[in-house]
């Protein structure tokens, strides 16, 4: 059981890391700011999501697991707002 949980953790966290690496490469390589923003949010959403998912079996109790999920939700929320705000500035800069 615990081996299975460990395997799941390794797999999910690795997958999460792949998204982070992809997102980072995207930020560096993508030509325009909007695409970079896209890469960033992908890393944030999916990367962190898989890492949190992978860590869930390792939690000592339900409360810890809830904390992890809560952190993920907060990051989603803040990330989405941040991305919106950046995009807004970008659009304003384009207009004139």
């Amino acid at each position: 059981m615990s081996l299975l949980a460990d395997l799941f953790t390794v797999a999910a966290v690795t997958l999460g890391l792949v998204f982070f690496v992809a997102g980072t490469v995207g930020i560096i390589r993508f030509p325009d700011s909007l695409s970079r923003l896209h890469a960033l949010t992908k890393a944030d959403n999916l990367g962190l999501g898989f890492i949190v998912l992978g860590l869930l079996p390792q939690c000592a109790g339900v409360f810890d697991a809830l904390k992890l999920l809560f952190i993920w939700l907060l990051v989603q929320f803040a990330g989405a707002t941040g991305a919106q705000l950046v995009a807004r500035v970008l659009r304003r800069e384009e207009r004139p």
Partner: peptide, 15 residues
């Protein structure tokens, strides 16, 4: 004030 910021403030602040 951008709408997303307003939303963030309304939801995040109590938390």
């Amino acid at each position: 004030v951008p709408a997303p910021l307003l939303l963030l403030a309304q939801w995040l602040v109590p938390l």
